[in-house]
């Protein structure tokens, strides 16, 4: 867990306009809590992609708390903000439960967010935990997507079920479940092609994969994870909403947190959705995956 914290914090402190520093700069040397402070806090949140509406709400809550509890020391603001963020994100880390044999995990998301790489990371992690992992190359559309997953499979040391490029992804999913059952696999992770959530034919294709999985193994998929790129702005809210409508989500993965983006949009999403963030990606290598820990994340954001 310290790995998660230090690495994430390292990434976050590289940011020139770091939120932590900003908030600290806002409160230090300020004799009292005034309206200007609240406005600057709001701006700091907006700059972290939290979104104007969610930022307004958050700051409004702070205003109320400050008034109700008659708080006058600006230094307390940082803790209050951190508490609010942790509250929105929920307190518990939410691991994947392996109470099915095989547990089927479907990975979805828009183009280029890091789905295939995340699958490699999950496979690596779960294999190291002693589970038998199988991958399915369900992206039959993008050029060399199958080869990409195959290379990851070799690196991690897990098998990949594949069909030809251009074939039906549902058929790949069906075969992969059958292979997973007959080989006594613990976890099957299914890759899918990137798709924009506003394209109904592509979203219907996902629903079909979902139905085929359920037919091949009633109850499958047991986990459907939406991968979100931390660099994404407010559009991530729309992604979460529409993918959730199309396939139902059990969790989110936030990638590319090793950049300077802070993934603040996750607060806007958490404020309206049930699905918790389960993992974060902090690099391109197979061990660059961490469990998402809401209090840690809030602390990393706010120092």
């Amino acid at each position: 867990m310290t790995g998660f914290f230090s690495r994430l914090k390292e990434g976050l402190t590289r940011t020139r306009q770091n939120l932590v520093e900003k908030v600290e700069a806002l409160v230090t040397g300020r004799p009292k809590i005034d309206e200007e402070l609240f406005e600057e806090l709001e701006e700091a949140l907006i700059s972290a992609d939290v979104g104007a509406d969610t930022s307004l709400d958050l700051v409004e809550r702070l205003r109320r708390t400050v008034k109700e509890q008659k708080i006058s020391d600006p230094a307390r603001i940082k803790d209050l903000l951190q508490e609010e963020v942790a509250r929105i994100l929920g307190n518990q880390a939410q691991p994947v439960a392996f109470d099915h044999q095989p547990t089927v995990v479907l990975i979805v998301g828009v183009n280029g967010v890091g789905k295939t790489t995340t699958i490699a990371k999950l496979a690596h992690r779960w294999k190291q935990e002693g589970r038998k992992v199988l991958l399915a190359a369900g992206d039959t559309f993008r050029a060399a997507a199958i080869d990409q997953l195959e290379i990851w499979g070799q690196r991690v040391g897990v098998e990949v079920i594949r069909h030809q490029e251009g074939s039906d992804p549902s058929a790949v999913a069906f075969d992969a479940v059958q292979a997973a059952v007959s080989r006594g696999v613990d976890v099957l992770i299914i890759d899918t092609a990137g798709r924009l959530h506003n394209k109904s034919h592509l979203m219907n294709e996902l629903s079909k994969i979902n139905r085929v999985l359920d037919r091949a193994l009633p109850g499958a998929p047991h986990e459907t994870l939406l991968v979100l790129d931390a660099t994404t702005g407010q559009n991530a809210v729309s992604q979460a909403r529409l993918f959730s409508e199309a396939v139902g989500l059990t969790g989110l993965v936030l990638t590319k947190l090793d950049g300077t983006a802070k993934g603040g949009v996750i607060l806007a999403i958490a404020a309206e959705m049930q699905a918790p963030v389960k993992f974060i990606g902090i690099g391109e290598k197979m061990d660059d995956l961490r469990d998402f820990d809401p209090p840690e994340f809030a602390r990393a954001l706010f120092g």
């Binding site: 020139r16 700059s47 972290a48 280029g112 790129d229 702005g233 950049g259 300077t260």
Partner: peptide
């Protein structure tokens, strides 16, 4: 540049 990029677009 991805059109979905948020506030970090300026830093990048």
């Amino acid at each position: 540049v991805d059109a979905m990029t948020g506030q970090d677009a300026v830093n990048v």
